[in-house]
Amino acid sequence: MNDIVRMLIQRISLGLLTLFVVSLIIFFSVSLLPGDAAQAMLGQSATEDTVNALRKQMGLDQPLHTRYFSWLGGILQGDFGVSIGNKREISELIGGRFANTLFLALYAAFIAVPLALVLGILAALYRNTWYDRSVNVVTLSSISTPEFFVAYILMLFVSVKWGFFPSLANVTLDTPILERMYRTFLPALTLTLVVVAHMMRMTRAAIINLLASPYIEMAALKGMTRRRIITHHALPNAWAPIINVIVLNLAYLIVGVVVVEVVFVYPGLGQLLVDSVSRRDLPVVQACCLIFAATYILLNLIADILSILTNPRLLHPK
């Protein structure tokens, strides 16, 4: 077990290091943009003196590295600073939005992951049959279509023409869960269509890849059924690549939803990011980017750890 603990510590420290580097990149690349928060708040007509006074008040006259460390220090204590647009605490602004984004991502994942696994396993089981081919064609066409287009097509048919689900996913904090699921069904479906192909094909490939190994032939020569060979002999050894692609897609569901949130006017973090960029609300942009990055790194860390833990060689050392 010692090896595993050491490996976990190593992965976690690597994750933290990556996050640190990302925070550097976010902070300094945003600071490269022309103008600053003080100017943005006061607008074009402000005099140089007033802008300077505000800079001093906000600490913007400090050297860059001092500002970076006070920013980082604040974040570590949960203080992301103040929004320029409405002067509210950013942490307050983000909290509910991030919860919405997570809700949508998990909702989509609950549909997409089991669907992808089942489709992938069946495709491996009935490889090169009409089933395999049609699943491939359908999932590949959905992944090849831009997600906003998928979103508008779904809206047009499912919502406008047939009226099953609402086209706008406007939820508030106190929307009950079932109502929430009803209203966000279309964005969740859009996301599902986008991510399922990747996961399904990876599951199929991981299993087929293993089907050529001697222990699979051995299982066949022991008289095992096809179903048992796939579920009992191939799948347990295919987890590592499958977990990786699942988590990668989960990360995409959280980080990559920007377009879908905007299309369905869903109050998530992605939409906040887009709004803040257009308002040049740089502290909010920085905070959103950092949260996205942290989510991404955390999920990949989990994928790493899980694929280590599903390896019997590491789990049961000599």
Binding site: P214, E217, M218, H233
Partner: peptide, 23 residues
């Protein structure tokens, strides 16, 4: 399939590769 394993069994060249590592 019903014969394999029960009435005719097979011993492979590389046991290391022919045992499933997960069980």
């Amino acid at each position: 399939r019903q014969l394999r394993g029960s009435r005719i069994a097979y011993v492979a060249q590389s046991a290391a590769a022919s045992f499933n590592p997960a069980h």
